[in-house]
Amino acid sequence: MEAAMDLMRRIPPNQSEMALSALLSLLPHHSADLLSQVDQPLQVFFDEESGKEFIQCEYNRDADSYRSPWSNKYHPPLEDGSIPNPQLRELEVEANDIFAVYRDQYYEGGVSSVYMWEDDNHGFVACFLIKKDGSKKAHGRRGYLQEGSWEAIHVIEVGIEDEGAAHYCLTSTVMLSLTTENKPSGTFNLSGSIRRQMSMDLSTEEGHLCNMGKMIEEMEGKLRNSLDQVYFGKTREMVCTLRPPPEVIQHRMPES
């Protein structure tokens, strides 16, 4: 498993789907571990009944069917597919509606889905998903990207309420790829994935949704910032090290 995880951080992120399926066929007995530790690209499916798109992932899968958060039905239809209890489903419906507004304000497009299920410790788990195609031909408003995808997976474990507070543990992954093509600069692609965790004990006065939403918003901001400043910044530094821009060479000259 350790070797498999090391491979996943070396293989180009835009090849991760292929890498995962290769690992699954080499290590069939680790498939459960692999599927839980390696985030897979999100697929979008159209729910005809509600006329809306929803995201498929491990968290809304039962057998070979996926549950739509809008209609609460499985596609393709599944007789006894597991569904959240009525109380949790109510929260799920509300979360989907609000998260769609959040998504639209930050992403100006894209698709989002929220899934919830009870966990073994009498609390519950919520999974917030966003998929955005920011390419010119899709939802890229400014038209800078030949290809651009952003996928965010936020899984929050919520403990049982105790004296008006609850423990929240958030694990977030962002996977992205962006490609620009210009005449003098050729093709420029950056792709990557990072995962971070954050735990908090919060008062439930304003409700779970408010707490989870704030955590996700803060986390997404952090992830976006570190991708931009740290991760992209490091690759930019590398380019400058390989072939320094002219001003750097001039600075270097007097020393040598």
Partner: peptide
Amino acid sequence: EAEYTASLEASYLKLPDTTFKDLRRKLPV
């Protein structure tokens, strides 16, 4: 090669406020 290096740098400079914005904004609209 100098022109290509400069254009790579330009692509990086455009990232935070233009290119990246088409994926996710820093702040909501």
